[in-house]
Design a protein around this nucleic acid. Sequence first.
DNA 1: CAATCCATTACTGTATACACATTGATCTGT
DNA 2: ACAGATCAATGTGTATACAGTAATGGATTG
Lengths: 234, 234
Amino acid sequence: MQKTAKPKKTGRAADSVEKVYDAVKELAVEYRFKPGERVNEVELATKLGVSRTPVREALNRLARDGFMSFVPNRGFHARDITPEGVRELYELRAAIERAAFRLACERGTDAEIGETIAIWQNNSNLGPTTDWAAVAEADEAFHIAIVTLSKNGRMLNALEGVNSLIRFFRRIDLESNRRRSGTYDEHAAIIECLRRRDGDVGGELIERHITLSSAHAVDVTKEGLARIFFRRPD
Amino acid sequence: MQKTAKPKKTGRAADSVEKVYDAVKELAVEYRFKPGERVNEVELATKLGVSRTPVREALNRLARDGFMSFVPNRGFHARDITPEGVRELYELRAAIERAAFRLACERGTDAEIGETIAIWQNNSNLGPTTDWAAVAEADEAFHIAIVTLSKNGRMLNALEGVNSLIRFFRRIDLESNRRRSGTYDEHAAIIECLRRRDGDVGGELIERHITLSSAHAVDVTKEGLARIFFRRPD
DNA sequence: CAATCCATTACTGTATACACATTGATCTGT
DNA sequence: ACAGATCAATGTGTATACAGTAATGGATTG
């Protein structure tokens, strides 16, 4: 009997909430829900092959993550999309990453810093490409790597939450002409500060690096709206 | 028929989750659950007069807030208490407040800044007191007021989450001799920077102000442990 | 024709039932 | 006495039922 073929004969799933959470989070990250739209629990439950109970538990989690708003007797509604919201997220990200960079310079071992630099050098060898999803993924990984060096799991956790909330916009931002050019040099300068363990200068650099993106909040929001409403429903 | 006596004749509560969330969060904030202890769903549900369904929904929210950890098939467990965890929270708080202070200096109107200063002056007129809960509350309000001026709701939200996670320790910290003395002067210096809209200097001050507390993480954790395990069960 | 009212439909909120997993105490063989 | 097996008791995970609330659409009225 193959293991992957059948989900075993298990009478109980026992991890439905996690599965629903991951699936719905993915939908929410990509704005598959229209902004402000009510999320129908039975529909979602049916589509995912579970009952409403685990769906509601997952939605409660997602609400605390910032992906859903909840109105009593009116259920869960997908997050909105506004320039202010995007700007605020970028500003929070900048705050976390600046502080984390300074801690990383204090706490990262030589080996860890060297490893981080090596990974960046490999990833930046992508050369010219049009796979923006891959570029965005590498960018996110770069920033995560630095915050990991801060040895502050709470900051890392908070950053991951923010990242999932802005991922949709970050991709748009990186695709735009404005950011494409500068990103490499900015990362290079940040990496150089990390090598020198210059937390003050590097912290300022990374803060500005991110703030530059927050300045485009209006543009990426417009483009995001277009993608949400013009894409094929699939 | 009195209104408060009976919860009306309503057949459905319709806000059980909110009530449970608030009640259990209060317990978690004050460490009424022993660190790591499994939270018994039926027991909690019975005590609160509801069924397990809203209890589990509330616990799922609290898990995302950082008050509970969740292990499949083993339910929800109360958060741990460790010096590293406390330190990490203070560091995250410092990161948010520093950035928010700079934004507050840019974005707060003269009226808002004046109002914030006035509130602080009033609150600092408490004089010598031993009502540490009130002192801690005023302290938290002071910091919240500044972050509010940043006009960044996401930062404010994140800070409120962190605040609820460290409130237990903050009170201990403020009660200790170490912090009691310096706090007033530090706040005064920060307020003066806000008046001058000096975001850079004030940001550094507030960051250091908070980092000073993070340096006591080990001490407040020890004292916290003692209070958790030695207090009367009530 | 527009606005309002009302009945019907659709959806949410909570309780309960039951299957499965874990836990821990008792038993067994050595 | 003790490590491992066994089994009952406890507790979690999900589905379902039902009560109550909002949303919808058509009839009614000005």
